[in-house]
Structures are given as C-alpha cells and as structure tokens.
Amino acid sequence: MMRILALLLLVWPLGGLAQTAAMTEARAAAKELEAAAGMLDKAEGARDRVQALTETIQAFEKGLGAMRDGLRQAAINEAQLSKKLQSRDGEVAQLFGVLQTIGGTPSPTAFLHPDGPVGTARAGMLLAELTPALNRQADALRRDLEDVKTLRLLQVDAAERLQDGLTQVQAARTALNQAMANRTDLPTRFTADPVRTAILIASTETLDGFASGLSEIVTDEVEPAPVTLQGQIGDLDLPVQGVVLRRAGQADAAGVERPGIIMATRARAIVTSPTAATIRYTGPLLDFGNVVILEPEARTLFVFAGLDVVYGEAGQVIAGGTPIGLMGERPSPDPAESGARLSPDRDGSGTDRTETLYIEVRRDNIPQDPEGWFRTEKDE
C-alpha cells in the first residue's frame, strides 16, 4: 500500500490543455489565409488591380506569419509534452500495473492482511479511497497522450496550409509584377536625365553625396513637392512587415554605424510607400543593393535600401500604400532547410526573417532618427 501512496506522489497530472493555444492560433491563421485566398480571386477583376494585389499580399504575409507562429507553438508544445511523458515512463508503467491489479478479479486470499480481519478491512477502505485518484491519474495520462496525437495532426495540417498559402502568395506576387509593368496611370512631376543619373552614381561614394545631388538629375520639373506630412510624423506606417533589428547609430557586427534603422523581414515581403510621395530614384546604389528614394514633402527624403525587386520610375507620384518593391530570398543549397525555418528552436530569434531593409530619413540632407517618424513598436 505504501508503494501505491509513493506512486501517487510521483505521478502528477501533466495538464491536458497543452494544445489549446496552438490550436487557437492555427485556426485563426487558417481563417486569415482563407480570407487572403478570397481576396486573390477578387483581385483578378478589381478596377485597381495593383491596390487589390497589394492588399492581398499583405493579408497573405500576415496569415502566413500567424500560421508559422501557430505551427511553431504546436511543435514546442508537442515536444514538451512528449518529453514529460518519456521522463515518466517508469511511473506510467507502475501506474498501469497497479490499475491492472485493481481492475482484475482477485481471489479472496488476495485481500487477507497479516493483521487479520481488521487490517484487511482497513486496507480495503484505503484502497477504495485510492482507486478514484489512480483512475484520475490514468485519465490525465490518457488525455496527455491524446494531446500529443492532436498536436502532431495539427502540425501536419498547418504545414499543408502553409505550403498552399506560400504557393498562392507567390502567384499574387507574380500578378503584381505584371500589373506594375502594365501600369501607365501614374502622374509625373519631372523627368530624370539618365546621363546625369549615371554620372552622379559613378561619382558618388556615399549616400550623403548621392542624396545631395538628386536635384541635379531632374529635368522638366512641373512643380515642387507638396507638403503632405503635417501631423503624420511619428505615426507613419512602416513600409514592410518586420521587426527592428538594429536602431539608428547602433554598430553592426563590423562596427559600422549608420543613421538609419535595419528591419528584419521575411523573404519576398512586399515593401510599400508609407505615404504619398514622389519617386526620386529607383535602382542599384553603392553597396546598398536596390534602393528606392521617396520625397514625401519638400526637402525630405525616405531611403529604402536592400530590396530585390523595385517598382516605379523617378518622377512618378505615388499614393500611400503603393508597392515600391519586394524583398529578396536567400537561396538555400539544402532543400530541406526551408522546413528548418519552422523549427521551434528558431522561435523568437528572428531567424525566420532572413532579409533586411535599411530605412533612412533625411530632412534638408540631415539624417533623422526613423523611429521618430514611423510606428516601430509593433512586432509583425
């Protein structure tokens, strides 16, 4: 009987609700992906196809991010629960052995106690009190085992939905590329002289020098940039879904300090204009990769560097939320590595956000802290 009491002290309930949060997140993400898929269908006949596709891609990115989080949480919960169950293999075996003994049909001699009839009666009463507790422990273990099975099934279903979503968002990006190439309705403030632009790029050694020389490449300017940021500074949307990886003035691994911020984004993330602006430059620049420079108001520039694909031409006037490019995607020599991005070991590390976008704000050619212009507190 002391063996049974010791077993009750050792085998604690493991819960049975481990999958609840992960299931809730995965179901919510699945709804977001279904909504995004519906938006993709509607975008085919939308009057402003660029805007419809932009909103669709952003919805997919949000849903895919939520699905990754739900899948990652399910993997974590399943691993933790399995580890707890494995660590209690011996205790579980003891519990099942005791329950099997209790559940059998013993002979009358099995209940005889060395102390005689009184001892036998006391032992029977104690066993009668312990049996419900042992059954509850068995039920808890059974629920935990069912939770493990449920979480594994959830991971399989979520992985399939994730793959479907990735296929659909890629189709939306391809459609956006085509829609942007066919767009001819954007107003133009000026025409960029390609010869002057090439000369400026060739003679420029710093972003400062290029920004200060932008006015030299303008011809046939219709009117100056309108003032549009009054009351918006500090409340502008970030151009991409992501997290701040490095703040202004914070040195990188090489000890280089830059006046802008670096955003960590997921592969192929869409980048949009935070506000109405004039495109001052698009294309490769120095060691920044592809760069888009916007002029939201006179004497103010937004610099976005590190894109893979850029949209638009210098001189065009675009509305807020207009796509200006897509982030890249690092090629992996190992096809299995794409699945590694879902590993629970990567949770919270930001390592699933493999691309970086550099954001710089310049007023009167003086760098400003972008965190004073954009809402950067959200982790999307």
Rank of each mutant, 00 (worst) to 15 (best):
R143L: 07
D147H: 02
L141H: 03
L154R: 09
T184P: 00
L130R: 04
A179N: 02
F190M: 13
L166P: 07
T167F: 09
D157N: 10
T184I: 08
P187Q: 01
T174Q: 14
L145P: 05
T174A: 06
E160G: 14
V169Y: 02
R142I: 03
Q170P: 01
A121R: 13
F190V: 09
L145E: 03
T174Y: 03
R136D: 15
D139C: 04
A158K: 01
R143I: 05
T120K: 08
A181Y: 04
D147A: 07
P132A: 07
D147Q: 15
A158F: 09
A140S: 11
A179M: 02
L154A: 05
Q178M: 11
Q170D: 14
N182Q: 15
E129D: 13
L154F: 04
D185I: 09
E146C: 00
T188I: 13
T184V: 10
T150F: 05
L141E: 07
P187I: 09
P132W: 08
Q168Y: 02
Q137F: 05
G124F: 07
P117H: 01
A121S: 09
Q163W: 14
D157T: 10
R136L: 14
Q170K: 14
V156L: 15
A159F: 15
K149T: 01
L141I: 09
E160W: 08
N177Q: 10
Q170A: 10
A171C: 04
R189Q: 06
A181P: 02
A133G: 00
G124I: 11
L154Q: 08
R161L: 12
G119M: 06
P132V: 03
R122D: 12
N135K: 10
L176N: 01
L134F: 08
R161T: 00
L186W: 14
N177A: 11
T150E: 11
D147M: 09
T184F: 01
E160R: 15
E146H: 12
E146T: 03
G119S: 05
Q137C: 08
A171S: 15
V156Y: 02
A133L: 15
L166E: 14
R189F: 13
R152V: 06
M125D: 08
T120C: 04
L145V: 03
R152N: 09
Q170N: 13
